[in-house]
């Protein structure tokens, strides 16, 4: 008994002596995450309380002395007549963006990787990431001018006898407009992480494939894609966590009352109806709901990925 314990202890000692660096390096990150991210989670209790900011002598005390109300705020959100419409819209828009937009940065990165003219590659790379720096307010302004009833696009459509489309007021066209503008803004930016991943692929693998007589597309398929697969699966996993967010910042700026039926998502609804404005509790409840869904999705997809592909985030 004693010997096993002491042997275990010496083994632990040896392990620590060999790997002390890992623990030392982890300290700053952990201190930050615990202090700045986990400690403030005491605020989540607001989702189950009738919070009044002035209930106590100071705001922290107010948080604790406000009365518990159970699931009342969740019932208010889920019980709303609009809830299912909002959830449907949120998921539809999120999935449209995911399916259409997720592959684009990968494609762009692969295309850039195939360019052999270095200056052209660099210039293009810089150009396509520029839209990321324009805020949604400004992007909305630019697209609105182009796509309005008498905007340039409709004039072209008219000239081609294709008929006008009111992109901003047609409930279906508007969803695609959301997808398109987001793709335009973020695709080039999204490609950067894949470009970085591409630099890590061992060049010898390419040479080996070339010797085997593999063509360009085959090399991409057999060498490049597997090489960046870990980053691709990571990106996909991280995207899933925000599935209920649906990019509401963009929607809030771009939508209008004529497309509420298809473009109103959970967060925009909460924002517009003022439910979350002063009612910190409802806003917290909605946030908690979104977090939970995201967390469950990430954890289960990670599990599936580990079982199916032997690759996982943790």
């Amino acid at each position: 008994m004693q010997t096993t314990l002491s042997r275990r202890r010496t083994r632990l000692g040896a392990y620590l002596r060999a790997n002390w660096l890992y623990y030392a390096l982890s300290v700053p990150g952990l201190v930050y995450v615990i202090g700045y991210k986990l400690l403030p989670l005491v605020g989540l209790q607001l989702a189950f309380k009738d919070f009044s900011i002035f209930a106590g002598d100071n705001i922290l005390e107010s948080m604790f002395v406000s009365p518990w109300v159970g699931m009342q705020h969740f019932e208010k959100i889920f019980g709303s007549a609009d809830f299912w419409r909002l959830l449907r819209n949120t998921l539809t828009i999120s999935l449209m963006k995911l399916v259409v937009l997720f592959p684009i940065p990968i494609l762009v990165a692969l295309m850039l990787n195939e360019v052999r003219c270095r200056p052209f590659q660099r210039v293009t790379q810089t150009l396509i990431y520029m839209p990321h720096f324009i805020s949604w307010v400004v992007i909305h302004g630019i697209f609105l001018t182009m796509l309005s009833a008498n905007g340039i696009l409709n004039r072209v459509l008219e000239a081609l006898d294709l008929g006008k489309t009111s992109f901003y007021t047609d409930p279906i066209a508007f969803r695609w407009l959301l997808v398109f503008t987001e793709g335009w803004k973020e695709s080039g930016w999204g490609a950067i992480v894949y470009l970085a991943a591409l630099t890590g692929i061992d060049q010898e693998l390419y040479e080996a494939a070339y010797v085997d007589g593999a063509g360009r597309l085959r090399r991409i398929w057999h060498v490049t894609l597997p090489g960046i697969a870990p980053v691709i699966s990571l990106m996909l996993l991280l995207r899933l966590g925000g599935i209920l967010e649906a990019g509401y910042g963009q929607i809030l700026i771009m939508y209008n009352p004529t497309v509420y039926s298809t473009a109103d998502v959970l967060q925009t609804y909460i924002y517009r109806t003022g439910l979350g404005k002063l009612d910190f509790s409802s806003a917290t409840a909605l946030g908690l709901f979104e977090s939970l869904v995201g967390f469950v999705l990430i954890v289960s997809c990670n599990g599936v990925s580990r079982k199916a592909f032997g690759r996982s985030l943790w």
Partner: peptide, 15 residues
């Protein structure tokens, strides 16, 4: 009325 009534903002009105 202007067909863009639903989406007009200060800038488009100015234009």
């Amino acid at each position: 009325l202007d067909p863009d009534i639903a989406v007009n903002n200060e800038t488009t009105r100015t234009e």
